[in-house]
Design a protein around this nucleic acid. Structure first.
Lengths: 248, 248
DNA sequence: CGCAGAATTGATACATCTCAAGCTGGGTGG
DNA sequence: CCACCCAGCTTGAGATGTATCAATTCTGCG
């Protein structure tokens, strides 16, 4: 809570770290120029809520840095995470004015926001944006369906292994390191957040993480720092097809 | 198994029952004309497989009549249904050449297929198609996320009630009847298919259906014919927010 | 140092799965 | 026309995985 003002920075799209992966990925420089005019940055601290489900939402946005989550909550408090938003992921839905999910920053977060109305107009004129958004949405749909298999049919151990494998692989792809050798990363989620993502309780998450550690599938330094000595082994534990369903 | 040939009919798009809901919904007559040139119908009998996951898929399609399912299968045979395809729903992904899921006809089925290559080209030239496809994909993503909550957090009884409520409501919306009074419909799925959709075993499905019947939440005539005397009561059992998350 | 949030671990309860036996209804062939 | 058959379904009894409730134990930080 050191700083509670929003860190509004203005950055050239050309220098943007997610330039080639976000919804603007296919834009030409003139199109980028138009986006530039309607964009603004917002920062959130770890733990802050970006928006509550049901609230009016007059912007759409891309995650620039940090991690956010989408969660649904039932009346009695049961929670299910339905999306993990990483840099370049898109939040919000053109043509809808209320948020459908709670959006929460799990780490410090910077988002590149576009006012919804102008964005929608621009999308109508700019096939490159609509095309990219379609592609990203189809990818998210695939990911959601992969997650449905996990939630519906995998055991607790398989769920944990799957989550770790996904994080490890994404992390490796971000760092552009060769995927040979040990993978090392910090868990961006608490045990409770992992539980909400996996449809488990935090106690079960803790037990299964301990079990994977005991069995040598993973190593831990502290609670969050994870070492994967053998990704293939972890993938086996995840129960995924050998070819690995996820193409990142 | 009376007929095993494919019932190839040619129909004018203008008369098509899904004209105003499918991927072609926004097309003008000249655009429809172009679709007409690359479309063809295929029929499948109940139980037939439309395509296997991993198979080459050189078409995309709309469901015209009947119901199909998307399922994922793990190596050891565990199955999870990840989509229920109703009339006007879209199958296949532009830009991908292999099927990601098993597609199966659960009732007799008619699909309106478009060869993938020409469809992709047409989509590039026809924003109306791409716009509609984006909209439909966003809807499917919302449905998938709603299903994630069900799979991850709902009890068996809530899962059954949710499925029945969805089918009842969709059925009511198709028939355009007022939603007052009893809703009556035939279950389009076997107990096993329901189990695959809900992440349960078929025995648990059977038990919970019996329990809902015993408690007067539903009435049954035979195994498949369902009467919902009070939809609000069923919705309560489903555990959904009172406003009903699903906007059909 | 000592506190608070996060995580671990234990004991027990319970929902759902698993295995197994029977039921039901519609179709088929003798 | 009846007996049989079989897929789909129901029901039962027991096993099991995960949730729940309850103590501790870590860990980072003021």
């Amino acid at each position: 809570m050191a700083q509670h003002d929003l860190n509004i920075v203005h950055q050239q799209c050309g220098d943007c770290p997610i330039r080639h992966r976000a919804v603007c990925a296919r834009c030409e420089s003139d199109e980028l120029q138009q986006l530039e005019e309607i964009k603004y940055y917002r920062s959130f601290q770890a733990g802050q809520t970006v928006i509550w489900s049901g609230d009016r939402m007059d912007f759409v946005a891309s995650v620039v840095t940090g991690i956010a989550t989408l969660t649904q909550t039932m009346e009695d408090g049961r929670r299910q995470m339905v999306g993990l938003l990483l840099p370049s992921d898109f939040v919000g839905r053109p043509g809808r004015d209320k948020a459908a999910y709670d959006v929460t920053a799990t780490t410090d977060l910077v988002m590149c926001c576009f006012r919804k109305k102008p964005f929608e107009e621009l999308m109508g004129k700019t096939p490159h944006i609509a095309q990219r958004l379609l592609e990203m949405t189809l990818d998210e749909l695939d990911a959601a369906r992969e997650w449905m298999l996990l939630l519906g049919r995998k055991t607790a151990r398989e769920k944990i292994a799957s989550l770790l494998a996904i994080i490890a692989r994404r992390d490796a792809s971000l760092k552009l390191k060769s995927q040979k050798g040990a993978l090392i990363f910090d868990l961006p989620l608490t045990r409770e957040e992992m539980a909400d993502y996996l449809g488990l309780t935090l106690e079960t998450v803790s037990r299964q993480v301990s079990a994977l550690k005991r069995d040598g599938v993973i190593e831990l330094q502290g609670k969050r720092h994870v070492i994967i000595p053998n990704l293939d082994r972890l993938m086996e534990e995840a129960g995924d097809d050998s070819d690995g369903g996820f193409l990142i």
